[in-house]
Amino acid sequence: MSLVSLRNVGKTYQSRLGAAYTAVRGFEMEIEPGEFICLLGTSGCGKTTVLNMLAGFEMPTEGSISIGGAQVQGPGADRGVVFQGDDSLYEWLTALENIEFGLKMRGVAKAERRDRAHRFLELVGLKGQERKHPSELSGGMKQRIQIARVLANEPAMLLMDEPFGALDAQTRSVMQQELLRIWQETRKSVLFITHDIDEAVTLASRIGVMHAGPASKLKGVIPVSISGERNRTSDDFIAIYRQVYGMIREEVALAMQRQG
């Protein structure tokens, strides 16, 4: 059985003035345990909407989402979320305290949570930064804290919304490699949102490409079966890149048309 299944999921936003906007409709997807899924789509197509519903932050207005057979009712510690910006970190806590936040909330004893937080702080390469506050850290470091904070809490699944979107190309590439390494070590299911084809082909075991909005859904799913280290200049990398690019090109054109 799949870990996650989204069946015929739709989301219509109701504005205060009464206008309705259907961002997603008829969205179908299954996620298997240990899979790394990249959700790719043009800006504004509804990627965040899908992730927010899976996280339980928003309720679908149509269809159903279940995890491990149970309907999603709201947010839960089984799904760790890494947000796009850094405004989800707690400025008044140190890096270490941010990482142990979930453990503290769930009543893990102090010595043990310190220990675990230290381990994950090291795992994301932040050794030596434990007593710094988010305001004293760079953008890349802050994203690492977010990732460590979620990993330390040991969710069954990671939901990541363009986590590296704001990083420079160098840092981004380093972070991608680290995320891959962590994923290979922990084998968690990951739903990773991006609008960068290169990033998707670098990371994913499957890539889901979305239609342009409104009423967006999956246009197709492309398995990425590149064994070993992924190299941007290798033939199979380029082949998949082309395939994805072909799918998304029309959607970009459509999206631009619709935006006028």
């Binding site: 996280a55 339980g56 839960g76 799904r79 405004d87 989800s88 936040f101 503290k104 909330m105």
Partner: peptide, 22 residues
């Protein structure tokens, strides 16, 4: 920031904990 609350929710914090700690 809404994400501060959301992060706490998906880290397993209760409403009261969110009030107290966020």
């Amino acid at each position: 920031a809404r994400n501060k609350i959301r992060a706490a929710q998906s880290l397993g914090a209760s409403r009261w904990q969110i009030f107290l700690h966020v």
